[in-house]
Design a binder for these strands. Structure first.
Lengths: 104, 104
DNA sequence: CGCATCGGTATGACAATACTTACCGTTCGT
DNA sequence: ACGAACGGTAAGTATTGTCATACCGATGCG
């Protein structure tokens, strides 16, 4: 899921969608890539649940999926939590395991 | 910075480092990749400030950098904030711009 | 009912990146 | 001081992924 935000164009699409829902053509008009590329990125983003699409006539309106965004944020938060917990466990060692620890 | 976490091996390294600080050989032993690959990933992670290294004799102990982790989390949080703000602005429209909006 | 527009898909090329093997410098132990 | 081990770097290869052009289906309008 995090990998979906790795690509630069994909982040641009998400940023564009964060401001307001957009159609595929609108996104392609704002971005320096073609419509098919936008479609593929949209497919990836929809596959991971970050965006959702809505049919409006011949247009397809894409918008951010708050649930997916929240899920990603929660996942990241859990990750940070674990990371900081491990860091705390490391610095909470009064009797250092290796005496080579100088300082930080 | 987010791109640093795009790679699968890099996320695995970060996950491994989240549990406890590790040497390069330790990481390579846990991961299905060779030591040089780990070194290169570690270089990337250190370059973006996500990890920091400490010399312990001939070994090099790597651990997560809480500052970098916090910075990344803050950046992501700002991003989510903007995204949800835009979403709220969209749903806060009592007089729909397009009458085509049925429901969610 | 025919035409136009919009989206998605398939295919191919190009680029970027990750991985491996080989080599070198550095540091510890004997 | 020599040998061993650990880690970083360099170059080459392979894989992955992104982008563009071309084609097709669907929807709306005249």
């Amino acid at each position: 899921m995090l990998g979906a935000l790795a690509d630069h164009s994909r982040r641009a699409i998400v940023a564009c969608l964060a401001e307001r829902p957009r159609a595929v053509g609108e996104l392609a008009d704002e971005l320096p890539i073609s419509r098919p590329a936008v479609s593929q990125h949209l497919k990836v983003l929809k596959d991971v649940g970050l965006v959702s699409d809505r049919a409006a006539g011949t247009r397809r309106i894409y918008r951010l999926n708050p649930a997916g965004v929240a899920a990603l944020r929660d996942q990241l938060d859990a990750f940070w939590n674990r990371a900081l917990a491990g860091y705390q466990a490391a610095v909470e060692q009064p009797a250092g395991e290796q005496g080579t620890e100088g300082d930080l």
